[in-house]
Design a protein around this nucleic acid. Sequence first.
DNA 1: CTTGACTCCGTACTTAAGTACGGAAGTAAG
DNA 2: CTTACTTCCGTACTTAAGTACGGAGTCAAG
Lengths: 137, 137
Amino acid sequence: MNSTPEIEAMTIGALARAAGVNVETIRFYQRKGLLPEPDRPQGTIRRYGADELGRVRFIKSAQRLGFSLDEVSELLKLEDGSHCAEARAQAQRKLVDVRERLADLQRIEAALSELVQRCNAIRGRVRCPLIAALQAE
Amino acid sequence: MNSTPEIEAMTIGALARAAGVNVETIRFYQRKGLLPEPDRPQGTIRRYGADELGRVRFIKSAQRLGFSLDEVSELLKLEDGSHCAEARAQAQRKLVDVRERLADLQRIEAALSELVQRCNAIRGRVRCPLIAALQAE
DNA sequence: CTTGACTCCGTACTTAAGTACGGAAGTAAG
DNA sequence: CTTACTTCCGTACTTAAGTACGGAGTCAAG
């Protein structure tokens, strides 16, 4: 039993359901150029497949990490095979950015898990090192 | 030579400059309760210190990582010494969230650095594994 | 003691990212 | 073939997170 039957012939509603977003959000992404206008095999109604589903999910994940739709669109342009040197330069810039975010998140992770540890140890009030975690740049 | 003289007596303008944000943003955070209303030692004008500066920087960092101001406010409440068990439970929930984000970011990091590697190796066009990076949940 | 820069406060405007709406047209089941 | 559900499209509304504005008060230098 396949969980996604007919995945290559989804209507906009099915796509939206599969990705856990609103139909209007799909249309909005199309207008912004984040999602290519798909084929309309039998006339006027668009059909979507696994690629589009993957894209929408990617957009949502990247947003959770603090990327704006404009930034996501740049990331997606990398994917879409721009010229190599150009893609590489852009990827490298993003990489710097991503690594900074990783470092910040790791500091937050450490601070939170230390808070949990301490809280297990001492009973009473705590002051956690959360803010300090993001001081060091 | 100290780079931050009189850090305990900053006006709102100095604080904003030090944190790299707009004065109005500081006032906005105060209204939202993200920043405590500070002392007004000699009358009506507020004075800010290192704590406030730290907070503003923390807010900005957390936002870059995809936390909304409401979420930041929850993180800050942890700091401000709520009762231990409560803080611990909340910290643990956040920790789960943060670890998911970390995993996503690490996948993006891997995908980007692989793209850069490949691009160094083969000359021509590339298709990067960016989208695939966030497929696995 | 005035002048220029800054602060305070309330209110209004802006931008990003959706969400909702309403009417016309497509489509699938009975 | 009708009826109910979708889709399509343009336009308008909403929410979060600021930004800008204007008038009144404050403060430090000249």
